[in-house]
Amino acid sequence: MNTKILVTGATGHFGKATIEFLINKGTDAKNIYALVRDATKADDLSAKGVNLKIGDYNDYESLVSAFQGIDKLVLVSGTDLANRSAQQLNAVKAAKEAGVKHIVYTSFERKNETETSPIAFLAQSHIDTDNAIKASGLTYTILRNNLYLDVLPMFLGEKVLENGIYFPAGEGKAAYVSRNDLAEAAANILISEGHENKEYATNNIENYSFQDVAETLSQITNKNISYFSPASEEYAEVLKNAEVPAEYIGMFVGFGAAIEQGEFNADKSDLENLLGRRPLSLNEFLEQVYL
């Protein structure tokens, strides 16, 4: 039987990478479906023979229609933080109604699931979606993805090599992981068996602090990169004076506090097993970006 796989958020980084890995690993493009809101932004996927399905997380009927005949659904978490819970619950309910057999969801690593979490604004939608998937009766695989290595340059700022690192994360560590590695792990799950009703710790195999980042950057660039962790209030004020939008300030401050509190410090990882190799390391990632 030809398993029909649908990937949501297919024009985004994660969705697109997952589709590319599926094709590279031998999945026939005619069995891959890409959920997009605007077909004109998915010409590259069409050119590869991937089927386009038009759908929107806000439009329940469009999701039910798009999910018809799909065996495995990759639900890539949305970017509309204010509405994400409702949108993703729509997608889970639609998957159930359409008869999807298996849902793979990109959730995230966390320890504190209460409102006291510095990133409760981000966490709640993931927790709601995880719970809805488990309650739906659908066969599922939940990926508890750690912070992307790919977001580090945003935290570090454009002038990190000149000015050093200024970020309010204290000595906290995180098992930062490459987005591409996570997408490849998702593709491997989709094309193999034994992942039914599993929750995977998709963390890197090492934890890194911002001091580690500074030292690694110093080594690979032959510059002296310092790290200073300001108080959250001071950091927020500096960003405000630099005219950074308020929602970004809140997000950066929240992530800094969560990292400092150890929210993303992981003591286990399933990623090496899912990939069949070691995940990309901090050192390798920083060399790709800064050399």
Rank of each mutant, 00 (worst) to 15 (best):
T8L: 07
F14A: 05
F14T: 13
E20A: 12
K25F: 10
Y33G: 00
D38C: 02
T40L: 10
A42F: 08
D44H: 15
L45D: 00
G55C: 04
E61G: 06
S62C: 08
L63N: 03
F67A: 03
L81W: 13
R84P: 00
R84T: 05
A91F: 01
K93Y: 09
G99D: 12
H102G: 01
Y105H: 13
Y105E: 11
Q124A: 09
K134R: 15
A135Q: 13
L138R: 04
R144E: 14
M154E: 06
A169I: 08
E171L: 12
K173Y: 01
R179H: 08
E184C: 08
A185N: 07
A185M: 05
L190I: 12
S192G: 09
E199I: 15
Y208T: 04
D212T: 14
A214M: 03
K223S: 10
K223I: 13
S226Y: 04
F228V: 10
S232H: 05
V238T: 11
L239D: 05
L239K: 10
K240G: 11
F252G: 03
F252T: 04
V253H: 00
A258E: 14
D267H: 06
L271I: 11
P279S: 13
L280T: 15
L282I: 06
N283V: 06
L286K: 07
Q288E: 14
L291F: 08
